[in-house]
Structure formats: structure tokens, C-alpha cells
Simulated scan of single mutants.
Amino acid sequence: MSIASTIRTQIKRIPKGRTFGYADLSISKADYLTAAKALERMQAKDEIKKLAKGIFYVPEISIFGELKPMDSEQLRPYLFKNGKRVAYETGTSLYNQLGLTTQMAFKIKLACSQKRISLNRGSLQVKTVKSYVEITQDNYELLGLLDAIKDIKRIPDCPTKNAIQFFRARLKTMNNQEINKIIRYALAYPPRVRALLGAMLENNQYVGQLNTLKDSLNPLTRIPLRLSETDLPNQAQWYII
């Protein structure tokens, strides 16, 4: 079967509105030039549409006309590379998904450890920030939680008391292996994240690797978060003021 026929067969299996790139077509890089010509012919026939350089989709037609891929689908090529996760949503859009705020993000923020992008595609605007830890499919949700802890004072319309209750409840659902992982990842984050995580785990009666977090903090440095003592009674023991 020719490269063009192989590509056409594979694209027929892709759901309408789903984005795809060369890496999704199971072809070698040596065949990319041939593939590009085949994709150009399919574009000319309106069988596929080009969303961005190297990113395509099979158009879906509704009674209102052609539909573009959903924002989440347009983001997918930037979240994964060669089938591996390399980025995740953070900032207001993530905190909205977590239920910490009802506000919607005007611009989506992606945390990534590799390529930085800036995207402005109609209603979809994206900027990237460097992640604190190398991102994988197994850890991105824990990293998102640490991001939210880091931004506890900047989450829109989210009182600190509510945020702490949310974080403590989420931490209580984790097993020891997950707790050990989030502690290890937290060591790469700013001191306020390590202090808050340690204080909340201690309030949850966790007695595992708290010393790892405590020893990573400078006892001569105070972390000004201005939290209520009723929200976090043991904050002073973690150098939070």
C-alpha cells in the first residue's frame, strides 16, 4: 500500500473534529515529504482542514455549517508530543476545572517543560510558563494541585479558607505513595508551597515524610501569607505568618 493510501486509511478512522499531526499517522520521518503532498491533496478536496503548521483535522458539518474543533481539542497537540504528555493546563482555567473558582480564563495558561508557545487563534489564546518538574501523564495532576497551592492568594473569587479546605480534602483522598510523590515534587516549588503542603498534611494527621518538607525550609525566613489561624492553626510551626 502506498504512503498516500496508508494516510487516507488512517485519517478515515480519526473522529471528526479530532486534531492530528504527522506523528499520529504512524509513518516514518523519511516519509513526511510524501505525506505532506498527500495531505495537501486532501486539503484541496476539503477532506481535511489545516489548523496550524503540521496540525490538521477532519471537518464536521452541522446544520449551521462547518464546525472547528473544540478548544480542548485544539490544545491537545500542545499537551502531547509523540503520544507523551509534555504540558498541562494551569492557572485560572485549571482552578475553574477543580471547582476553586467560577471565573473563566480569558487566556489559557499551559505549564510545559520543553517548547514554549504563544497562541492567539480567535477565542483561543494560550501562553506558556515553565513547569517546576518534568511533566508526565502520571504526575501532571499532582503538579496542577501544587500550582493551585502556590497561587492560593491569587485564585479568583476563592477565599483562602475555602482553598485550604479543598486542598486538605484532596490530600486526604491520596494514598501514601501519592503523598510521597507530591512531597517530592513540592521540593522543586517555592518555599510557600512546601510550607503550606507540610502544614496541611500535618493538620491531616499525616506523619510520614514531613521532615523532608520542614528541613527544606529556612527557619530564619518567614513566609508572609496572612492566613487566619483558624484556617491553619499550625502555620507558625511552618514559618508562615
Rank of each mutant, 00 (worst) to 15 (best):
K37R: 11
T19L: 15
N204Y: 01
N211R: 00
D31R: 15
D71H: 15
I155S: 01
F20L: 07
D24F: 14
K109L: 14
Q235K: 15
D147F: 03
F20H: 05
R192L: 11
L110S: 05
A236K: 07
A188Q: 10
N204L: 07
P59L: 07
S5A: 13
R85C: 05
V129H: 03
S5Y: 03
E47V: 15
F167N: 02
I241V: 09
R192F: 03
Y140S: 11
S113V: 02
G21H: 07
D31W: 06
T102N: 02
T90V: 07
P156T: 06
P190S: 06
K172N: 12
E47W: 13
P233V: 05
Q209H: 07
M174I: 05
I241Y: 12
I240H: 04
R226V: 06
L213E: 02
T101D: 06
M42D: 02
R116P: 01
Y189L: 07
Q114K: 13
T92S: 02
L100G: 00
R226E: 15
A163W: 00
S72C: 05
I48N: 10
L79K: 08
I61M: 12
S26E: 12
P77N: 06
S28V: 11
C158P: 01
E66Q: 15
I63V: 14
F166W: 08
T102D: 01
Y78G: 05
K16S: 14
Q177M: 10
A30V: 13
Q205T: 06
N204H: 00
A52F: 10
L94V: 00
L196A: 09
N162F: 05
Y132H: 14
A111K: 00
Y185T: 06
L171T: 01
Y185D: 09
F106D: 11
A186K: 03
